[in-house]
Structure formats: C-alpha cells, structure tokens
C-alpha cells in the first residue's frame, strides 16, 4: 500500500474551500468581466463611456474621499481604544473587548438603521440638542456625507481596533520603561519607542478599513439617502434602474482594479505578507 503524501493531503484538505471559491466567486467574477466587454455590444464601449462620464468620476472621487476620511477617523479613534485596552490593566478589560466585538454580532443593516434613528431630522441627537436649547432648527446630520462618515466610522471601527490591539498586546511594556529609565519623557518614550512598534498593526488596520470602505454599500446607501453616491451604489443603480448590465459590470471591474491598485501601492511601502498573515 502506498503512503498518502503530504502534498496529496494538502490538496484534499483545501479542495472543498477552493471549489466553493472557484464555483461561486471566481467564475461569476469572470462572468462580470465578460459582460463588461459584451453588453450591449462587443468591445470596450462601456469603459469608454465610464471614463467619459463625469457622474462616474464624481462617484469614484466620493468613494475614495469617504473611504479615506473613514480610515483616518477609525485610525485615530481605534488607536486610542486599542492603546487603552492594551496598556492599562483593568477589571473592565474583558467588558471593553466585548464592546469592541459586539457590533460584529449585529448586522450592518441594523446598525445603519440605528444611525438613521439617531441622526434624523427629529432623531435623538437633534431632539436632545433642541431640548437643551443649543439649536433652533435641526442640524442636517444625514442624507449627506457627514451622516455617511459617522455611520461608516462606527461600522468599521472594530476592523481598525482588532489588528492594532493584537499588535499592541504583543509589545512588552519593558521598552517604554527602558526608554524612560534612559532619560526619555513619557511622550518621547511613546513617540520614538512605542509608536514605531505599533506601525504594523496600524498598517493592517488602515488597509483593512480602506479596502472594505471602498466597496461598502448598505451604510452609504441608507445614510446618504441617494445624495452620496459611492461606487457600489452607483453600480446598483446602473443595473437595477437602467438595466445597464454592461456599464455596471465595467464599473465593478474598475472598482476591483482600483482596490487591487491600493493593495499594490501599499505593498511597495509595507510588507503585506507580515501584516496580513502573521499576527503576533
């Protein structure tokens, strides 16, 4: 009887997942690529139209701007939360971790609707501010980019916190102690010794949030109220309202390429393999 080789075992074990990926993801994506150059007629007409359309340009611009601001917001808020949880021993630490993870168990749809309840014209925030006498007329907190950003940052925050937290928990407190023992102030010790060690976590959080935000659909659609047209929503419009499968597909391909480009550029500056695969 022959021994089953490790190589054979490897393929047996990954086959189910690989098959599902090929059948339900890669094959349909290739289908989209095909549609983008065959509908309504063969050729690159869709791409030409896409590049010529100022609406598409605007939508891409909004998409990248929203994704960038969301990323910066998540980075700042998330860094503070992760730093606090990782560096201060407290009985509340498990609770804090639970609060970070909790949003994962609630659907994005529900979380986005909650923001509508909070930010609407007569939502909780506006009512409270008016009752306390700070404002006369309700602030426009949604159906604009501000509303989209508030909800996006909230939804994306755990994706920023978790990689940074994992990274920070691996950093021994002796480095900061050493820095201070050698004459550095608390701030200098943080800036020149602690911060550089957290950059891998920061980079993986940033990449994760930015790439996810580029293709985000539900939250901008609900909070934007059709006024903040990010590219995913634009694609949905093309296909559902105008039945423009060709242009919709071409836009999907463009989004995929744009995302790939972001990763490619990121790879020039950071070691993606160590950021995305190794968790210390």
């Amino acid at each position: 009887m022959t021994q089953i080789t490790d190589n054979f075992r490897y393929w047996i074990l990954i086959m189910p997942a690989l098959a599902i990926m090929i059948i339900f993801y890669i094959y349909p994506v290739l289908g989209i690529w095909q549609i983008s150059v065959t509908e309504p007629e063969a050729g690159f007409g869709n791409y030409v139209r896409m590049v010529d359309s100022s609406a598409v340009r605007t939508s891409f611009l909004i998409t990248f701007r929203v994704a960038a601001i969301t990323t910066v917001g998540c980075l700042i808020l998330g860094y503070i939360v992760a730093y606090t949880i990782a560096n201060f021993a407290s009985r509340l630490t498990p609770l804090m971790l639970a609060l970070v993870l909790l949003p994962f168990w609630v659907s994005v749809l529900i979380r986005s609707f909650s923001w509508i309840v909070l930010l609407g014209r007569s939502g909780l925030v506006n009512d409270t501010l008016r009752d306390m006498g700070f404002i006369d007329a309700p602030l426009r907190l949604m159906h604009n980019e501000l509303g989209v950003l508030i909800a996006m940052i909230h939804v994306m925050l755990p994706f920023a916190i978790l990689p940074m937290l994992a990274n920070m928990r691996g950093i021994s407190d002796t480095y900061v102690k050493a820095a201070r023992g050698l004459g550095a102030s608390e701030w200098t010790a943080f800036r020149s010794v602690y911060l550089p060690q957290t950059l891998p976590g920061v980079m993986s959080g940033v990449l994760l949030v930015f790439v996810l935000a580029l293709g985000f659909y539900i939250t901008p659609a609900l909070l934007g109220g059709g006024r903040v047209l990010m590219i995913s929503e634009y694609i949905t419009y093309q296909i559902q309202e105008f039945l423009a499968w060709g242009l919709g597909s071409a836009l999907s391909v463009a989004l995929l390429i744009a995302t790939a480009l972001v990763l490619l550029i990121a790879a020039r500056f950071v070691n993606l393999r160590s950021i995305l695969l190794d968790r210390k």
Binding site: Y175, A178, G181, V193, Q197
Partner: peptide, 12 residues
C-alpha cells in the same frame, strides 16, 4: 544608566 532583564533593546 539601566540594563534591563531581557535587554529591552528597541526593536525598531
């Protein structure tokens, strides 16, 4: 001047 257990050389 301090020498720490495990050295604590700044890795970056």
């Amino acid at each position: 001047g301090m020498v720490f257990q495990g050295y604590a050389l700044f890795p970056t």
